[in-house]
């Protein structure tokens, strides 16, 4: 059965444009690369770049597991960790990656690639707590503040079991990724207390509720928060909860099945050039990973609260790691929370 499934997938993939010499195939979300960046790379090196979009990390995992041959995959940290543990990645060619030293070391050697042999960070960020000071009494500094009665029916949380329960875990003084049953039971109880304050659980459109004034506070992903700040400057306050922060890095890897690893390494090296990297951050609107590019960034690129995590909090950052069976436990707590 599995073979047949794989065969069907292979047939589907065969329909994709054939690999030519001097081309690389990149597998990632739609919209992660500025077409101008890619056009400039092709002009300089003659290497054609084909982008194949996936809808989610999980779609990507299924396709990679069935043996697809992409030269670069750009996906979230936990998904890359799954690929690494399944031996589906090949080490980067550090000799070819002469620009690697430009990268900001604070984004290197993370849990999904502890020795820094497989991945190049691309778009890191942390969810931001955004609130409307006109509608909120006092200053909000922590996740615990959202439990206050003044927020009745006016808080948007991300519809993500792992991130939101992770924040509850830190608030209770536990690990973001705890797999201790007693601690998780405590988190489930605590979670229920915030239910009366929840307006919506939404990972994509929560900013609309802020803009319309329905929500007094909302959790937003980095790039959404930047968009909010751009469209209504000064209207909202942007806070990283004082208990500690969850974090995520979208990074690039070269799969073991890559047919053009030289081309892939050349592309990665190109992206790490300071003057190229300086065009990437304004496009992705995530944190800047390239230290050498910092001063080349267009004026004001990093002048957003969502991109300036206080150093002491940055040190506490925790990733939502893949927890195997415990993924289901988190999801179960989340379903119960929704239905309570």
């Amino acid at each position: 059965m599995k073979k047949l499934f794989a065969l069907l997938l292979v047939l589907l993939l065969a329909a994709a444009p054939a690999l030519a010499e001097g081309s690389i195939n990149i597998y990632t979300w739609d919209g992660y690369f500025d077409p101008a960046t890619i056009a400039a790379f092709t002009e300089e090196t003659g290497i054609e770049v084909n982008l194949s979009p996936f809808a989610s990390n999980e779609d990507m995992l299924v396709v990679m597991q069935s043996g697809a041959a992409y030269d670069i995959v750009l996906a979230s940290d936990y998904a890359l960790n799954i690929l690494r543990k399944a031996d589906l990645l090949q080490p980067l060619d550090m000799e070819a990656l002469t620009n690697y030293e430009n990268l900001d070391p604070s984004y290197l050697n993370q849990y999904y690639d502890p020795d820094g042999t497989y991945s190049i960070p691309y778009a890191p960020g942390s969810p931001v707590l955004v609130y409307n000071p006109e509608l909120v009494e006092g200053e909000i500094t922590s996740f615990a503040d959202l439990f206050d009665e003044q927020f009745a029916g006016s808080v948007c949380l991300l519809d993500s079991a792992r991130v939101m329960i992770g924040y509850i875990n830190i608030m209770l003084g536990h690990d973001f990724n705890t797999t201790d049953d007693a601690e998780l039971a405590e988190a489930a109880e605590k979670l229920k207390e915030i239910k009366p304050n929840v307006l919506a659980l939404d990972s994509n459109l929560a900013y609309q509720y802020l803009l319309s004034g329905e929500a007094k506070a909302a959790f937003l992903f980095t790039s959404q928060a930047v968009v909010c700040e751009q469209s209504m400057p000064g209207a909202f306050e942007y806070v990283f909860p004082s208990e500690g922060i969850g974090f995520g890095i979208d990074a690039m890897v070269i799969p073991a099945s890559a047919e053009n690893p030289e081309g892939a390494n050349a592309f990665l090296n190109y992206l790490m050039r300071p003057e190229v990297a300086a065009t990437i951050q304004p496009w992705t609107m995530y944190l800047n990973v390239n230290a050498a590019a910092a001063e080349l960034l267009p004026e004001g690129s990093l002048d957003y609260a969502a991109l300036n995590i206080p150093e002491d909090l940055f040190a506490t950052k925790q990733f939502a790691e893949d927890l195997g069976d415990y993924e289901s436990v988190y999801q179960e707590i989340w379903s119960e929370f929704k239905l309570s």
Partner: peptide, 12 residues
């Protein structure tokens, strides 16, 4: 929704 979440979020 439950099926969608189990497939994509729990990866179960």
């Amino acid at each position: 929704n439950l099926i969608n979440d189990q497939l994509l979020k729990s990866r179960d």
